[in-house]
Structure formats: structure tokens, C-alpha cells
Design a protein around this nucleic acid. Structure first.
Length: 201
DNA sequence: CAGACGATTGCCT
DNA sequence: GGCAATCGTCTGT
């Protein structure tokens, strides 16, 4: 078992976004390891990318993206949902990869418990982590984990798996960024594992 | 300090 | 397909 090191994240963001597909995201909570395979990501490419929060400048919220790679950027959206990003590139270049979906592998009961609204029925496996807000809820990720260093192997980290072959990776425009300029809206910077049933949408 | 709004989700018709 | 939920962050007064 190898924990993804800082060098993995200190690369071009489009490279990291594709290489993250298939890797295991692990969250330690209540003495358990909740584990999911990353199956969908989106790249946010820094100050020139008008879809990237950091294009608006350096603010308290975007500060962590200006820091070293290998840390989390976690923020609240719509007052309801947390989003998990991993900071990429060299320090002071503000870019990150949004984790959009995971395929649950271990700790399923606790993940379901985190996601459950009515405890009466069992949530289908597909719906546990097939969206950026859903996977944060399943893994109990909130603002307290913003800025977390994922290379320490504690609390939240990534474990290395063989990267997917290029053939297995599909790409398309990013979602929910109507506020961005046309060219940025159209850029195919969302990546997912082809034919995987656990992607969002 | 008021106002606008968002890298979404789930429920309703 | 439409739309409400719900609040931190940012902007402009």
C-alpha cells in the first residue's frame, strides 16, 4: 500500500485530474476506514480559468489553493453541501481538482448511515457517492478538513492504484459553471471512468 | 451592513 | 423538467 505523495499533486492539473481516476480515497472515522475509488473529477486551472474560484483573486476562502499541493480545499456550497478538492501544481499557483464521484469499496454501512435521511430504507450502492456533495456526506467531510495535508496517511489520504488506461477515460465540459466565460464553460476538463455506473449526472 | 449568489441535491409535478 | 433549501463569502454602500 502506497500513499500518494506530494509529487503526485505537484503536476499539471489536467494530468492530476486524470491520474486520480481509479485511486482510492480513504477516510478514517470512528475507528473505521471508509474507502472509495475515484471515478469522476474536474480540473480547475488557476487564475486564467474563470470557472476557478481563485480567478477572483486571493481571499480567505481561496487561500489554500495558493498554498502547497497535496492539501484539501473544502468549501460549502448553497449553504448545504461540501465540496472536496485537492490542491495541485506548484505553491502560489492556485489550482485544484474537484472529486465528483466515488465507487464505495469499504465501510459501506457507515457511509450509508452518513447519507441516510429516512433510516427506514437502505440506500442503493450507486447513490452513496455519485456526486460531489454526496461523497462528502458519505465520508463525513466538512469545513474542518479544509487545508488538510492528504500525504500524512492520517484522517484523510489517497492510496495508489495503477492509473487507468487512456482508453478507459472519458472527458467533457464541467458542470454547474454558467457564471464562467464561454471558452471555460466549453473546455473538456471533466473526466470520468468510461462506463462506470457510479459517476454523477 | 444589506444583498446577491453559488463547482448541488432531492423532492415535486 | 422545475424549484426550494440554506448560509458562508464576497461586493458595494
Amino acid at each position: 500500500m502506497t500513499i500518494l505523495p506530494r509529487e503526485f499533486f505537484a503536476q499539471p492539473t489536467l494530468t492530476v485530474a486524470q491520474n486520480l481516476l481509479g485511486q482510492h480515497l480513504v477516510r478514517a472515522v470512528e475507528g473505521q476506514h471508509l474507502r472509495g475509488r475515484i471515478v469522476e473529477t474536474e480540473a480547475y486551472l488557476g487564475p486564467e480559468d474563470t470557472a476557478c474560484h481563485a480567478s477572483k483573486g486571493r481571499t480567505p476562502r481561496t487561500e489554500v489553493m495558493f498554498g502547497p499541493p497535496g492539501r484539501t480545499y473544502v468549501y460549502l456550497i448553497y449553504g448545504l453541501h461540501y465540496m472536496l478538492n485537492l490542491v495541485t501544481e506548484v505553491e502560489s499557483f492556485p489550482a485544484a481538482v474537484l472529486i465528483r464521484a466515488i465507487e464505495p469499496l469499504a465501510g459501506l454501512d457507515l457511509m450509508r448511515q452518513h447519507r441516510q435521511r429516512q433510516p427506514s430504507q437502505t440506500m442503493p450502492l450507486r447513490q452513496i457517492g455519485n456526486g460531489p456533495g454526496k461523497l462528502c456526506q458519505a465520508l463525513r467531510i466538512d469545513k474542518s478538513l479544509n487545508g488538510w495535508d492528504v500525504t500524512t496517511g492520517q484522517t484523510l489520504w489517497l492510496e495508489a492504484v495503477e492509473p487507468l488506461p487512456k482508453m478507459a477515460i472519458a472527458s467533457g465540459p464541467r458542470l454547474g459553471i454558467d457564471y464562467a466565460q464561454a471558452a471555460d464553460r466549453a473546455a473538456p476538463w471533466r473526466f470520468w471512468q468510461r462506463d462506470n455506473p457510479f459517476i454523477s449526472k
